[in-house]
Computed example of a mutant assay.
Amino acid sequence: MGKPALAKRAAFRRHAVSRKRKRKEKETASAFHELVTFFKSPTGERLIVLEIFIFTVMTLLIYTLYQKELQKRQEFQMAVDMIRTVLVGIDPVYIDKEDLEILAAAQNISEEMRYFANKNDELQKEIDILIENLNDGWVIYERTLYWFSSEVASWMDAQKNCELEGANLLSAESVEEQLFVSTEVQNLKKVYWIGVFKDKGGTWKWLSGKIASETYWNYYEPNREPNHDCIAMSFDCYYNKCWMAVKCDLPINYVCKKVPKDTWL
Score class of each variant (00 low, 15 high):
Ile102Asn: 02
Val17Pro: 05
Glu69Thr: 10
Ile252Gln: 05
Leu130Lys: 11
Glu98Leu: 14
Tyr94Val: 02
Val139Leu: 09
Ala117Ser: 14
Arg46Lys: 12
Thr64Met: 04
Leu188Thr: 02
Leu179Pro: 02
Glu112Asp: 10
Glu163Pro: 06
Pro4Arg: 12
Trp204Arg: 01
Phe55Arg: 13
Leu70Asn: 08
Leu250Pro: 02
Glu75Val: 06
Arg9His: 05
Thr85Ser: 10
Asp236Asn: 13
Ile54Pro: 01
Glu27Asn: 10
Leu170Phe: 06
Thr64Asp: 13
Glu184Ser: 07
Gly201Lys: 01
Ser208Asp: 04
Cys162Leu: 04
Lys241Gly: 05
Ile194Arg: 02
Lys22Trp: 09
Leu100Gly: 08
Glu75Thr: 08
Trp147Val: 08
Ile83Asn: 02
Asp136Gly: 07
Glu177His: 09
Ala158Pro: 07
Ser30Asp: 09
Val88Asp: 13
Thr56Ser: 05
Leu207Phe: 04
Tyr63Glu: 15
Leu47Ala: 08
Tyr216Gly: 00
Arg224Leu: 08
Glu34Asn: 09
Gly137Pro: 05
Ala245Lys: 04
Cys237Tyr: 05
Pro222Ile: 00
Tyr238Lys: 03
Leu188Tyr: 09
Lys125Asp: 15
Ile52Asn: 11
Leu179Lys: 11
Gln67Trp: 01
Lys258Ala: 10
Glu101Arg: 03
Phe116His: 15
Asn240Gly: 09
Arg14Phe: 06
Ser171Pro: 00
Phe76Asp: 15
Glu51Trp: 07
Leu207Tyr: 02
Asp157Lys: 08
Leu47Trp: 04
Ile127His: 07
Glu69Trp: 09
Leu103Met: 09
Leu103Arg: 02
Met78Pro: 04
Phe32Leu: 15
Leu6Gly: 12
Val152Pro: 00
Ala117Arg: 15
Lys119Met: 12
Tyr146Arg: 13
Ala167Val: 03
His15Lys: 11
Asn223Pro: 03
Phe53Arg: 05
Ser208Gln: 03
Lys200Cys: 08
Tyr94Ile: 01
Val185Arg: 00
Thr37Met: 11
Leu47Gln: 14
His228Thr: 14
Arg21Gln: 09
Lys26His: 11
Tyr192Lys: 00
Ile129Asn: 12
Ala117Pro: 01
Val191Met: 13
Lys24His: 14
Trp206Cys: 00
Cys237Gly: 12
Arg73Pro: 03
Pro4Ala: 12
Ala167Trp: 03
Pro42Asn: 14
Asp249Phe: 07
Lys97Leu: 05
Val181Cys: 04
Gly202Gln: 10
Arg143Val: 14
Ala79Glu: 15
Leu170Asn: 01
Ala5Arg: 13
Lys26Cys: 04
Asp136Gln: 13
Ile52Gln: 15
Glu27Val: 05
Tyr115Leu: 15
Trp204Glu: 12
Tyr220Gln: 14
Met156Arg: 04
Ala167Cys: 13
Ala29Cys: 08
Pro226Phe: 04
Ile83Ala: 08
Arg224Gly: 06
Glu214Phe: 14
Asn168Met: 10
Trp206Glu: 00
Phe76Ser: 11
Ile231Asp: 04
Phe76Val: 05
Trp206Val: 01
Glu98Lys: 15
Cys162Thr: 01
Ala7Ser: 13
Ile102His: 01
Leu103Pro: 01
Gly2Thr: 11
His33Lys: 15
Ala5Gln: 12
Pro4Lys: 12
Arg224Cys: 02
Gln159Arg: 11
Leu50Met: 12
Ile194Ala: 03
